[in-house]
Design a protein around this nucleic acid. Structure first.
Lengths: 214, 214
DNA sequence: AGTTATAGACAGTGAAGCTATCCGTTAGTT
DNA sequence: AACTAACGGATAGCTTCACTGTCTATAACT
């Protein structure tokens, strides 16, 4: 496959593919002459993965490069998992986070074995800190519901990884699951919100029988 | 309160506050003379809200403006909810989404009352489409776990909104809950992943007894 | 022989989110 | 009254990010 076809099948401009090559998001094709190379379906899949991570998962190019390197590496799965987690979370300074918020997060995760610098733990604490700052108090019951749901989802995540045969497949699932899982969940959550709110307040002002065009 | 104090207490540069004023994320202070104004704690809270939405929730300035206008408006709650949902989701063209992916999402949400153009439904479908494109098939069991968890969370969301007294408080909770709820859940999910993975594979190569510094 | 495609280098673009500078007032201090 | 610091408002500039476009020399099709 040549560049033009790769571009057509991935629906990605040639200039963008060249950019991904420069950024090491994509390995070069097999050389057939000094200024010609041929690409295979692996390249095509990789471009689609990159675009999925960036467009759907919302990763930056730098984060996408990190997780792709983690897939391609021979690192053990836990390390790959950690790279995926760190790449989707923005780096937080643990010392900058309110200790009361941290303590409350740890309370939500009572009985969980989680390391102190788990990026999710820090991110959750900074969310709780934000609630404090804008004057929201005592959402404990609400937070507890989130913790229960997170446990459920994490269990499903691990099931799915366990079902795969080899390290490469597992590693890709870990990365893709971590990145796209967030997007999937928040989408389903919004849909569920509409459903539940219609359950509780049947037909307020709302049109549901005829889905409208935007 | 004058500008300097507002800046100090919100830990936000004066130039940034002026930027927020220009962008209508923040109302002007009460005029005391042609070039002087005084701000109150409402302004302070608002700045913290804006920074929470942008820094923690990851909203763009434009999205933050939309949701803040929705809070301040007198729109009924369902409309406010919808604005919040649309502001945190990127706008997707329904016609551009693979119909098989949409059908599978609808399968996951069997029994739910969700309008066809719910942004979460479309977002979830585009995630499923991405899985297809990178050659992942049959994650149905996994997806189903997500749908169940989403229902749980949405129920908790509505409980929390119901508990509040007036429209203004409810509206702010809707917006803040929608935006920060995503961040909270994904944080807790990452922590839960570490916990579950340690439960299943006790102490792989991993250090958990002594949390390390980055 | 002539058009088109290619690899690779590099400069340029446009959006986003601030940040800095300037101006003419006003407030507070001395 | 004089002086300094802070203010509101306008405008320009900065930095990062994710591309996008242009160029050259070579190779491939027709």
């Amino acid at each position: 496959m040549k560049m033009a076809q790769l571009s057509a099948e991935s629906d990605t401009p040639v200039a963008t593919i060249k950019f991904y090559l420069r950024e090491n998001l994509l390995a070069g094709g097999e050389r057939t002459s000094p200024n010609q190379a041929s690409y295979n379906t692996g390249h095509l899949r990789r471009i689609r993965l990159v675009r999925g991570l960036i467009d759907v998962g919302g990763l930056s190019v730098a984060a996408a490069r990190r997780v792709i390197e983690a897939i391609d590496s021979e690192l053990p799965l836990p390390e790959t998992f950690e790279i995926a987690q760190r790449s989707v979370s923005d780096e937080l300074d643990p010392t900058a986070i309110d200790s009361s918020a941290l303590a409350r997060v740890d309370g939500l995760m009572a009985g969980w074995h989680v390391s102190a610098n788990n990026p999710g733990r820090l991110a959750a604490a900074s969310v709780l800190e934000t609630f404090d700052q804008i004057g929201h108090v005592d959402h404990r019951g609400w937070f507890a519901g989130y913790a229960a749901a997170a446990l459920l989802v994490a269990d499903a995540d691990l099931d799915e990884v366990d079902a795969l045969p080899d390290r490469e497949a597992k590693a890709e699932m870990v990365v893709v699951g971590t990145v796209l899982g967030d997007a999937l969940f928040s989408g389903l959550r919004r849909a569920a919100q509409e459903h539940i709110s219609l359950l509780r307040y049947p037909y307020p002002n709302h049109e549901i029988t005829e889905p409208t065009k935007e």
